[in-house]
Amino acid sequence: MRNVFAVARKDVLIEWRARLLLVRVLPFALLVLVLFAVALDSEALLTRAAAGLVWLAAMFATLLVVQRCFDIETADGALDMLLTSVVEPSRVFFGKVLAVAAQLLVLVVVLLGGAVVLYGVRIDAAGLVLLVTTVVTAVIGLASVGTLYGAVVAQLTGRDSLLPLLAMPVLAPLLIGASRATESAFGSQTIDLATGWAWTSLLAVFGVVFAAAGAASFATLTEPDA
């Protein structure tokens, strides 16, 4: 556990120094929200689509955060140092998932705020509990899948375009689940709270499955070869 937190703390510290989340990823994600509003051009439609749009924007932003999370390791060959010497690869994986999840948590909270301001979404007390649970489970799922597929494409040429192609289909259940659960938390008429909780449990299963898969395959993915 000590190593997991050490890796996570190191990643967050580097992110804090570079502030890429603040100056690039957050503005980009908010821009996506604004552009959706312009493209859809209907306030009724926006309120209805708000949940899906927030998570779509979060998904795009995840790709940027994950790419960055591997770039800091490969820029000066630190990943080799990390993996070829001291740490159990699965611990590095969990540390990175933690760091990515922390950043995504900030991001999703800002995006939800954006939805309230821009899309006129309302959240009541009963919905808030569901919303918080959904955000936490979905963010863990996003971070697990993102970090796992980030490792699949790490150090490959053309990884910037490969990552979306590989990770997005896998994230489909998460996008569906998180959007529906958030929709119900937003108090839309289409989905009741109980169904919302059912979706959140799907998200939890999703997160556990891919966190386990990532821990199991991280060593193979990062094994140095001739």
Partner: peptide, 27 residues
């Protein structure tokens, strides 16, 4: 190595996608 892991991950992915889509459409 990378593609082998990818192919095995697809085996995990497909049931989850299918289950979520079934649940989604049933709504």
């Amino acid at each position: 190595k990378r593609s082998a892991v990818l192919a095995l991950l697809a085996v995990l992915e497909i049931p989850l996608v299918h289950f979520s889509v079934v649940l989604w459409r049933s709504l």
